[in-house]
Design a binder for these strands. Structure first.
Lengths: 336, 336
DNA sequence: CTGTTAGCGCGTTCAA
DNA sequence: TTGAACGCGCTAACAG
């Protein structure tokens, strides 16, 4: 009989028997209820420890109606910024002893899965490739929080004042003395997030009487930023002295282009990048950015999610105010 | 009646009431038991659909000791290939009525979370950035299947004969007449998967007496492939006539570089790409690839996972044999 | 074929 | 302060 001993999962009943109390007393002791004597509590805890007790989450969830899990719908896995944000929120939720579950499926089916797991709340990184009727509501009663697209979905949202960010960027460059600037971003109609930034760029450019051109990109990948920058910066004569970049990923491409064209940043080319993510500070040329610090977004998102879990009311739309972070990628334009 | 109502979570009891049957009949019907009349089954299914029913996994797990859920540890979220593979496996498991859960956490903590959710099995996309002692074993009794790194972990693995793939690629190019070829990939020591491919490239190059150079990349992103290709292809004189690319992502970058240098593929440059994913066929120039068709890997992985769930024994290491898929990105070298 | 009954492990009444 | 009883939503026996 060299048979491996089958380790039976230990339940509160086993502990109760061993401790000589009823299992409901054990339950209370483990949850640190004030309704048990300190002495018994300690005894129970010690025995539970000894026996290697692990609570059965399924059972706990079944009766308490709480899973201590939060689901994330994250279809656009490729963007550096959402990845970093996701990671931060995940950490913060872990501190509050929540588990994070992820789905890369279409929103609909992701929600169905989370529904089966009875998660306590759902956070959606809105996917702009997925065309959903603006007022579409999903078939679940689990509270939902959406990132971006404030005002376009029937759920609470958390969002950044993107137009304000663009304004900060342009003003900063204007004050440095730049009069010929470019915007590299994605002017695709259905991507509301990008469009807002560009609209403001145009407005500000006109208000301040600047030469302002917009370089479209096909998508938000690094290489697209590279191509757009390459094109803009090629003509030596009338080259913009500064670029506002629509995202961190694009900026990496722009830097690549600058390097290849032997344009030094910031001496010959200033860059203000959207998205204030930690990586921004670690590039060879630390980036001057406009945006909301990612960790404050994460804080706000976490807090709001927990409010939703507790069925407290939250605002329909939470707007975060962006700020300008000066680093080393901007300077006055070189004298001609 | 296209309207779906969502007030509270709907349970089998709700369905039972609405359908005028007992809740155990509903349970059977939903699980497609032969013990219910076809007619009632259909009726129940229809009503469940209408009411937006989702089974409560916690309850199911509590009684049946099975959660019908499988956890995926997927720390390297950014690669196109793993993403596509993930999606395929997910679909196949859904067909078998399993739900998949995803975690992007570090392997350790992902496993802890899955443990608490009592998933039936865990699939790990091994993360090569995460240094783990080769024989490290995780603290769980849930069965684990690992993708890649066969022979390096104390769990069953599923893997591709990567060296064989490289060999196929080189031989194919040799037969077409190429005598000067390059490899673009990631020769980073700790990434066993990449190293294997490169070692074989060197071997084969020598065996066949070819001029063979290796262009290192910093990471597996598209842009890195672009940079490496750009560098290799710049010198007009001694330019390689063919490139073996270490991954689909890199290949996209290589194609961008070729386009920019006005090198037509395959007339002036042949490319064999690792990773046979569906997208390979859809590029402007459909790619000749070496590798195992993703859907067979997915099939094998799914099947093996289900074996593990059923406590059937599985081999320590499953190797998949790669094959050459001829498309349009390779041709004989242009006459000089 | 269908309904009834009995738990799964746990938290929460309500009595004692 | 403790314990007995109930039920969460579901599956699996067992009766009808």
């Amino acid at each position: 009989m060299a048979e491996k001993e089958v380790i039976k999962t230990v339940t509160i009943k086993d502990i109760a028997e061993r401790a000589g109390v009823s299992f409901s007393t054990v339950s209370k002791a483990l949850r640190n209820s004030p309704l048990v004597q300190e002495k018994t509590k300690l005894k129970v805890l010690r025995i539970a420890e000894e026996m290697g007790y692990q609570p059965n989450i399924a059972a706990r969830r079944l009766v308490s109606k709480k899973s201590w899990a939060i689901g994330f719908v994250w279809p656009s896995v490729e963007r550096a910024t959402t990845g970093a944000l996701m990671t931060l929120i995940n950490e913060k939720l872990e501190e509050r002893s929540y588990t994070t579950l992820l789905s890369i499926n279409r929103i609909e089916s992701a929600i169905a899965a989370f529904h089966r797991f009875q998660v306590d709340a759902i956070f959606i990184f809105y996917n702009h490739d997925e065309k959903v009727p603006p007022d579409y509501s999903y078939n679940t009663n689990i509270p939902i929080l959406v990132y971006g697209v404030a005002g376009h979905v029937p759920y609470p949202t958390i969002d950044v004042r993107r137009d304000q960010a663009t304004k900060l960027a342009v003003e900063h460059l204007y004050e440095l003395g730049h009069r010929n600037i470019a915007y590299i971003g994605q002017p695709v109609r259905y991507d509301l997030l990008q469009e807002e930034k560009i609209r403001k760029f145009r407005e500000e450019g006109e208000r301040l009487g600047l030469k302002h051109i917009i370089a479209p990109v096909e998508n938000m990948e690094t290489h697209s930023g590279y191509l757009a920058a390459k094109q803009i910066l090629q003509h030596k004569d009338d080259r913009p002295t500064a670029i506002v970049s629509g995202s961190y990923d694009l900026t990496r491409g722009i830097l690549q282009a600058a390097q290849e064209l032997k344009l030094s940043v910031p001496e010959q080319l200033s860059i203000v990048s959207y998205d204030n993510i930690p990586q921004s500070a670690n590039l060879e040329v630390p980036l001057t950015t406009v945006g909301v610090e990612l960790s404050s977004i994460a804080d706000k998102a976490t807090e709001t999610l927990l409010h939703l879990v507790d069925e407290e009311s939250v605002p329909d739309a939470i707007y975060m105010e962006p700020e300008l972070t000066l680093r080393r990628s901007t300077a006055p334009p070189a004298a001609r």
